[in-house]
């Protein structure tokens, strides 16, 4: 078990996980937004390392990624920022495989681990191709979080459940990030995951309001909120305003009763 597995299983005994997503380097002071969200009750932080061709992301995160890239943001610069910030909550990096592949798998895993990163989400790394990364990441105690989609048949859900570390990312719908606005197929996907493994299961993709978050958290162990927050930052929200938004999600989650 990775450290992230241990921490998130412990978290599950206390409350529903709130996982906001931030694009690393979107603004020069991007880590102050992360700090604000932790103050407001975020449990895990997902940090996007931008890629030029984000296949799984909708217009909001695409725009954010391009802006960050125009600021010359790199895997190394984001890891540097994370090292300096030394956040107390677990950090999970989301990026596309080419970024890790180009930097070198072993080198990437070591850099992430040294920067205090507990896990990664690599949406274009299918389980069939994931072994080389999985091996070096596990050796560095960096968890690899895998996604289950509404289209995943039972045998794939089982395999993903066995392989995913930290948590299982349950995609609420067949869509890229930021486009949908309800909890979609979350119930069915979460149930499919729970039938095969005991790993905490968080719902993402399409969670834009506190109501969605409450509903999704009732079904699962936590929620991931991405585009809705990135949009606020792109629109010029201050760290304080973001703290307010995260607090709203926190209250919604704390009010969610679990069916599990």
């Amino acid at each position: 078990m990775t450290t992230l597995d241990t921490r998130l299983r412990d978290l599950r005994t206390r409350r529903k996980a709130l996982v906001p997503y931030f694009i690393g380097g979107l603004t020069a002071d991007w880590t102050t937004y992360v700090s604000a969200s932790i103050l407001a009750g975020a449990d895990v932080i997902e940090v996007g390392v931008p890629f030029s061709d984000p296949m799984m992301d909708g217009p909001v995160i695409q725009a954010g990624a391009l802006r960050a890239l125009s600021n010359n943001v790199t895997l190394e610069s984001i890891c540097h920022d994370l090292s300096v910030a030394a956040f107390e909550v677990p950090i999970v990096v989301m990026t596309y495989y080419n970024v890790l592949h180009h930097f070198g798998l072993e080198r990437s895993a070591e850099l992430l681990a040294q920067s205090g990163v507990a896990g990664v989400i690599v949406p274009d790394l299918a389980i069939e191709e994931s072994t080389p990364w999985h091996d070096v990441a596990t050796a560095a105690d960096v968890a690899t979080v895998l996604m289950v989609a509404p289209s995943s048949p039972a045998e794939r859900v089982q395999r993903i459940g066995e392989l995913s570390q930290g948590f299982v990312y349950a995609a609420a719908r067949m869509a890229v990030t930021g486009r949908a606005a309800d909890v979609g197929d979350a119930s069915r996907v979460v149930q499919a995951v729970r039938a095969t493994c005991d790993t905490p299961t968080y719902v993402g993709i399409g969670i834009t309001t506190a109501d969605h978050a409450r509903e999704a958290a009732t079904l699962s162990d936590g929620v991931i909120v991405g585009s809705a927050l990135v949009q606020r930052i792109l629109d010029g929200a201050s760290a304080q305003e973001l703290e307010g938004a995260i607090s709203t999600f926190r209250r919604a989650l704390d009010g969610a009763s679990s069916e599990a």
Binding site: M55, M56, Y97, P123, D124, L125, A126, I127, E128, E129, L146, M147, V148, A149, P150, S151, S152, P153, R156, I160, A171, M174
Partner: peptide, 21 residues
Amino acid sequence: AGGHFGSFGGRFVPEALMPAC
């Protein structure tokens, strides 16, 4: 079987598309 020509090729897509592939 995985679509590799030597070290090239393969399938690097989101899980949502894997069943379709």
